[in-house]
Nucleic acid binder design. Structure first.
Lengths: 348, 348
DNA sequence: CTGAAAGCGCTAACAC
DNA sequence: GTGTTAGCGCTTTCAG
């Protein structure tokens, strides 16, 4: 026999205040058409009972839940968490609750049930925060985007008819490599992220383009693919030393792999930055305390999450007001170069 | 004029299948009392339409939402994120959705509205994942825990009548210091976390107790308080060197601060582990790639989250079955010592 | 086996 | 100003 929830209903408040439920409804919705006297009486009952209207019942009748679905993956890594942090702060500030789903893998393509669950809970909009890996965005084509709720996609290649909020990874890669060139490095290797990741491909393409425009070498022999982990970085740098012995600098696709590069250099007695310049990507909080401190590219993932929330709420507003929503334009955030000692040669 | 949601209702399915809504209800709830014929007809309509029952309406009538409220703070740090990762995986596996709230600060004590929001959305249970900082758990005394939903608290000092799932920080501290003693270090300093954090106090108490039991020094002059950040670690180690010049090892309350210790040692030409043994806490993924690799205490935060979910669902089960729930017993997870080079002197 | 009626907690539309 | 009626989408008696 289920213990009946002790939740107070509008009915109980109404009868305690000696009014109809409708009047209580008016009070809690701050409608003007209630006499001051009644309003006060009702309010004091509400206070006394600690009554809180059921958001569920409201959602049902209003056809609007003030809830956003957030789909993410890899929360055990710091990147997705920072994004979620930005999302949570912004949603709270704008009066929305968050329904969170984490995919067990990045490359899961069976996401239909996830959407179904979210929709069955009447979310007003969805933020798709799973990074673009392999074919894991193919489901988009199967999605009936017109009839469903607004969706904002995070950090992805722009696509027709889709709202995307991204950090410009290509620009970040350019900043990194251009900086190394300015510092006088000329034989710049690359440790890439896993190339089924869109972001890894962008960073690598930037490395290649920037070097080639400068008339320098950027071929397969100058790069090795890692998988973001420090462990893979350790293997990658070993291989890169073998493949490209003349290398005088390396652009590493994230800070964790860059850390391994520094460890390897330390063990081999290679001096950073004199003999090897190093630039990472992400600006994790530790990287300022590596030895030497790591030059890196900062991406503001908190802002990414915040903007995603703002955008999806804007879209919900359009949908709800019945106005014709403008064609979705992509939002792109620029990363920043953070110069530290690992890439700045002391003057001779 | 709000665009009507394109959601399909049970009514539409019923009329398309030529049956009543209850019959559809029976089919989607897998009730036995439907003829095979009818069942098939209904199912094919459901398939065809892609119908998904409204979880909202169900929650309302069943008085059960299969939703858990999760309250967290500091998602931009890796610890809370790992816990959330564990929570999300377990909840998904057990058929529960997650309503996420992140507090803007750790020490916010005005949490009543948070609970109100969660309850207004009919969560079946709550996982309180905010670390215990200063007086930020005082609200518990004001909470009417009998009449509300089950709550599980994470990583806190055990309290009467409350379900807590914690990692034994005290034991972790003991493991760290005992290991240093075994390695022959005798003048062991401590860089503490911020002492308004319960976890920081536990780690420090363990350091103190273990040393004093061994007849060694562990006073105010042998410790400095940091704030978990690498930056604070850098300051702390400087001060500790001044305060305690004879120090031959240091137990640092987290890995990020330990990183700064290593950087400082490197700059000063102090050899780790020969001249200074270092043990951290957390086992962040980078710490195996510090130079030298960092000995640390691993806490399985993923498991913490997972167990919290299991416990809260168990409590929901009791409440729902009407059985007398057993008095809540605390669950405590043991951390593990991970030995790496930073604390192991090579034999002379 | 199937359907009609009632109601979860709330609000929109209308009466008075 | 305030109450009544209807209904959001679903499930639960209880008839038939």
């Amino acid at each position: 026999m289920p213990r009946r929830s002790s939740r107070l209903t509008i009915k109980q408040v109404a009868s305690a205040a000696g009014v109809s439920t409708q009047t209580v409804s008016r009070v809690i919705n701050a409608r003007p058409d209630v006499s001051l006297d009644t309003r006060k009486r009702v309010q004091s009952v509400i206070e006394e009972f600690g009554y809180q209207p059921s958001a569920l019942a409201r959602s049902l009748i209003r056809q609007r839940s003030y809830t956003l679905g957030v789909v993410t993956a890899g929360l055990k890594y710091i990147g997705p968490s920072r994004v979620l942090n930005g999302i949570a702060g912004a949603a709270e500030g704008m009066g929305y609750s968050l329904l969170l789903k984490e995919l067990p893998q990045f490359d899961s393509n069976d996401v239909y049930p996830i959407f179904q669950t979210l929709l069955s809970r009447h979310v007003d909009g969805v933020i798709w925060g799973v990074p673009e890996v392999g074919p894991n965005r193919d489901f988009i084509d199967r999605l009936n985007l017109d009839s469903e709720v607004p969706v904002v996609f995070l950090t992805m290649a722009p696509r027709e008819h889709l709202k995307a909020v991204s950090i410009d990874n290509y620009e970040g890669g350019r900043l990194a490599v251009a900086h190394l060139l300015e510092q006088g490095y000329r034989r710049i290797g690359h440790i890439a992220g896993p190339l089924d990741w869109w972001e890894a491909r962008q960073r690598m393409a930037a490395w290649q383009d920037t070097l080639r425009e400068a008339g320098l070498q950027a071929g397969a022999e100058n790069t090795v693919e890692g998988n973001w982990s420090s462990a893979s970085g350790a293997e990658a740098i070993e291989q890169l030393f073998r493949q490209y012995p003349a290398m005088d600098a390396v652009f590493v696709a994230n800070d964790q792999m860059a850390l391994s590069v520094m460890q390897a250099a330390c063990q081999k007695g290679i001096n950073i930055p004199q003999e090897l310049g190093v630039v990472g990507f992400d600006n994790i909080s530790e990287s300022a305390y590596f030895w030497p401190p790591l030059t890196t590219i900062e991406q503001d993932q908190h802002a990414l999450g915040k903007i995603a929330v703002e955008e999806v709420i804007r879209m919900i507003g359009f949908q709800w007001s019945g106005a014709v929503a403008p064609a979705p334009t992509p939002v792109t955030l620029s990363p920043t170069l953070i110069v530290r000692q690992s890439s700045v040669r002391r003057s001779p």
